[in-house]
C-alpha cells in the first residue's frame, strides 16, 4: 500500500510539485504562492468593487450624471489615449485578476481535498472557523455566476429586453424593476459581502502583513469594507423597488432626445 512508495517508511507524499522553472512559476506552484496570488488579485477585485460602488452612487444624482460617468470611463484619460483604450486596459487587468483568483482557488481546493481523503467519522465541532471562512468557495461561486448574468444584463444587454446601449441609467432601472432580478442582485451581494468579510482580512495574513499592534484593525477593516459594499450595493435594488429611483425617460428614445424632453 502507501508505505511501499516511500523510501524511509512512514507516509507517502500526497503531492510532488515539479521543481525548477522561473522563480515566479515555482512560487505559483506552491500553495503559499497561490494564496499570495489570491491576495493580490483579491485586492485588485476589491478595488474594482469599491470604485464600481462609488460610481453607481451617481444613480441618486440624476440620469445625466450616471450616464456621463459611463461616458467618462470610456473617455479616460482625456485625450492622452484613444477613446476606451484605458478602459480596456482596466478590463483586461480585471479579467486577468479574476482568472488567476479562480484558478488559484481551484488549485488550492484540489490540494486541500487530497490532504484529507477520509474525513472525520464523528461530528466536527468548529471553534474558530467562521461561516464566511467555511463558505468561501460557495460565496465565490455565487458571485462568479452572478457576474456572468450581471454582464449579460447591463453590459452586453442580452438578458435585458429593454437594453439601450449607452443609457446605463435606464438599463439599470429597467433591470432592477423586475423583482426577480432585484432579488438575485441582493442575494449575490450578500454572498459578496460574506466573501469579503473573510477575504479582506485573510489577504493580509497571506501576504505576511501582520503585526499584533494592528491585527485587530485589519479584522475590523474587513468587516467595515464588507459592510460598506453590502449597504451601498443593496441600496440600488431597494431604491428602485420602492420607486425612489424611477425611469428618467420611459421608452427607448435615444439619450439626447430623452434629455431634452425631461429638461435635463
Amino acid at each position: 500500500m502507501a508505505a511501499t512508495l516511500t523510501p524511509r517508511g512512514g507516509v507517502a507524499p500526497v503531492r510532488r510539485p515539479r521543481k525548477g522553472g522561473p522563480a515566479i512559476v515555482r512560487f505559483y506552484r506552491s500553495a503559499v504562492g497561490k494564496k499570495w496570488v489570491m491576495a493580490v488579485t483579491g485586492i485588485a477585485l476589491m478595488g474594482f468593487v469599491l470604485v464600481h460602488l462609488i460610481g453607481n452612487i451617481k444613480l441618486y444624482l440624476s440620469k445625466e450624471e450616471l450616464n456621463l460617468y459611463g461616458e467618462a470611463l470610456r473617455d479616460m484619460p482625456g485625450h492622452l489615449l484613444p477613446r476606451t483604450w484605458l478602459l480596456w486596459a482596466f478590463r483586461l487587468g480585471l479579467v486577468a485578476a479574476f482568472v488567476l483568483h479562480v484558478h488559484s482557488a481551484w488549485g488550492l481546493t484540489v490540494i486541500n481535498r487530497r490532504a484529507r481523503p477520509v474525513g472525520y467519522q464523528s461530528k466536527r465541532d468548529y471553534v474558530a472557523a467562521t461561516f464566511a471562512s467555511r463558505t468561501m468557495r460557495w460565496t465565490g461561486l455565487i458571485v462568479l455566476l452572478y457576474l456572468v448574468f450581471h454582464l449579460m444584463d447591463l453590459t452586453w444587454g442580452n438578458a435585458n429586453p429593454d437594453f439601450v446601449r449607452g443609457d446605463p441609467y435606464n438599463n439599470l432601472v429597467y433591470s432592477m424593476q423586475r423583482p426577480a432580478v432585484a432579488l438575485v442582485y441582493a442575494l449575490a451581494n450578500v454572498a459578496l459581502a460574506i466573501h469579503l468579510s473573510h477575504g479582506a482580512w485573510s489577504l493580509f495574513q497571506s501576504l505576511g502583513i501582520n503585526n499584533p499592534r494592528y491585527n485587530g484593525a485589519l479584522r475590523r477593516f474587513a468587516y467595515g469594507f464588507a459592510g460598506i459594499i453590502l449597504v451601498g450595493n443593496l441600496s440600488f435594488p431597494i431604491a428602485v423597488q420602492l420607486g425612489l429611483v424611477d425611469l428618467a425617460c420611459p421608452g427607448d428614445d435615444p439619450v439626447a432626445e430623452c434629455n431634452e424632453e425631461s429638461g435635463l
Partner: peptide, 10 residues
Amino acid sequence: EEYFGSCTLH
C-alpha cells in the same frame, strides 16, 4: 506542501 493541505485562515 508535499504532505499537507493549504492554509485558508480558518
